[in-house]
């Protein structure tokens, strides 16, 4: 573990990243967008509050603000991370620095992880920078500090999953532009396909089991971190204030104990909840993608199962 964080690629990346004005401007832009949205929301809602002010409305407003901020931040991370990671390996290739890195004793996994952790630390920086904004929510109540920490952990897991797709594309495509476009297409296509497929499976299930009173969650939903986010938000707001899973036709009933759950991985969802299961599933996929990426980046790949004299094809042809 210590070796991971004592990663020269990570240290170098952080140094280079934090030196550029682009990073500062990005953080400023990021916070400006969040602040503008929070301000607009509060400005319109405060009038409601001043007219019909009561503890309940105040609490709902807080939850709504929290949900809005959480969703915006989630979207910003989804939009920013591919741009951060899709250039990581292809950029080194374009700058002709990758070979220099590969002929050091650093393993290709260490290089890939260094890039990944550097992008994740950028997300961590963004989320930490947004804490003062999030603390606006505490003015209204309804959300505990622990909720925000859980949310941020979920952001990091999401960033890890989305980032691994970016890195994977960066390894597969030679040009950063192609890799970035491919990463966005894959991420958004996955987002839509998993939703549609999940919804289709849900309606299929409902058609076949008209008397089922529990909760059915189709497996594709676990591949989509947006589902995890809505579940988390729904859980945190007690299934009332937040968006929750109501959009998927799943009521807050499932947060009550003893609700029968079925569908793929329901055994895990029963223990970890939907967002927990979602985190596990996307993390596992991300780890697999990173391992494949490291394997592809490796310049000289020996298939151990074959005789040592036979070598696999090399990574780059030039």
């Amino acid at each position: 573990m210590k070796r991971w964080f004592n990663n020269p690629v990570l240290a170098g990346e952080l140094k280079i990243r934090m030196r550029s004005w682009r990073t500062v401007l990005m953080i400023m832009g990021y916070l400006a967008i969040m602040l503008a949205i929070a301000y607009l929301f509060l400005e319109t809602s405060m009038q409601t509050l001043s007219r019909y002010g009561s503890v309940n409305i105040s609490r709902d407003l807080g939850l709504q603000l929290y949900t809005i901020l959480a969703v915006i931040q989630f979207m910003l991370i989804i939009i920013l991370i591919p741009a951060q990671t899709a250039g990581s390996i292809s950029g080194e290739r374009e700058k002709q620095t990758l070979d220099l890195l590969l002929c050091t004793p650093l393993s290709s996994l260490a290089i890939v992880l260094g890039k990944m952790l550097s992008s994740m630390s950028f997300v961590l920086l963004l989320t930490i920078a947004s804490i003062p904004l999030f603390s606006l929510v505490f003015l209204f109540g309804g959300i505990a500090p622990m909720d925000i920490i859980t949310l941020f952990v979920f952001y990091l897991i999401t960033a890890f999953a989305v980032g691994s797709i970016g890195i994977f594309c960066s390894v597969l495509f030679k040009k950063t532009v192609t890799a970035t476009v491919a990463a966005y297409i894959v991420i958004f296509a996955l987002g839509i396909i998993t939703l549609l497929l999940g919804a289709y499976m849900t309606s299929e299930f409902a058609g076949k089991n008209p008397h089922f009173s529990g909760v059915y969650i189709a497996f594709p939903f676990y591949l989509n971190p947006a589902i995890g986010l809505f579940d988390l938000l729904g859980q945190q707001s007690g299934g009332t204030g937040g968006v929750g899973l109501t959009i998927l036709g799943v009521s807050s009933a499932m947060y009550n104990a003893n609700v029968a759950m079925t569908g793929g991985l329901s055994w895990m969802a029963q223990k970890l909840g939907v967002w927990g299961t979602n985190s596990v599933v996307i993390s596992v996929i991300a780890i697999i993608l990173l391992l494949i990426s490291a394997w592809v980046v490796k310049p000289v790949r020996v298939l151990k199962t074959h005789s040592s004299k036979r070598h696999s094809a090399d990574a780059s042809v030039n």
Binding site: P8, A11, G12, K15, I16, S20, Q96, D99, L100, T104
Partner: peptide, 23 residues
């Protein structure tokens, strides 16, 4: 290598330090 690149935003000393760390 015959063609190679360098990292922007790194100083000469840091450049060497980075590769030293990689070893």
């Amino acid at each position: 290598p015959d063609f190679f690149g360098v990292y922007d935003n790194l100083k000469a000393m840091e450049y060497l330090d980075f590769y030293g760390a990689s070893y």
